[in-house]
């Protein structure tokens, strides 16, 4: 189980490098979505590993609310690019 978690940490590094290198704002948003989902799934894995339902509950909440925040941010950035390409 720890090996699975190590593999998830290694997978988490891929979008972090992508977010650091790519200048396009949408590529960074994609990397952000990937990281937000991966971290909450990792919280769920840790909760199962330790048989801790409190952490599991928090993981579910972060998984849903974190993606809601992502949608809010994406909406604001999309409105911004519409203003910039208005004419």
């Amino acid at each position: 189980m720890t090996a699975v978690l190590m593999a998830m940490i290694a997978a988490l590094l891929i979008p972090m490098v992508e977010a650091f290198q790519d200048e396009d704002i949408w590529q960074r948003m994609l990397a952000f979505a990937s990281i937000a989902t991966k971290t909450s799934v990792m919280i769920l894995v840790v909760s199962v590993l330790r048989d801790d339902w409190m952490i599991g509950m928090v993981g579910v909440l972060i998984l849903s609310v974190g993606n809601a925040a992502l949608m809010l941010l994406a909406h604001i950035i999309r409105r911004l690019s519409e203003v910039m390409e208005e004419y």
Partner: peptide
């Protein structure tokens, strides 16, 4: 500034992961 906002989101996600793994479920939330 906009790129920094996205990275701030990444920082928040990683911080929530650390807090949850260390046992602070309320702090992570």
């Amino acid at each position: 500034p906009y790129q920094a906002l996205v990275i701030r989101g990444i920082l928040g996600a990683v911080a929530a992961l650390i807090y949850a793994v260390l046992g602070g479920a309320d702090v992570a939330l």
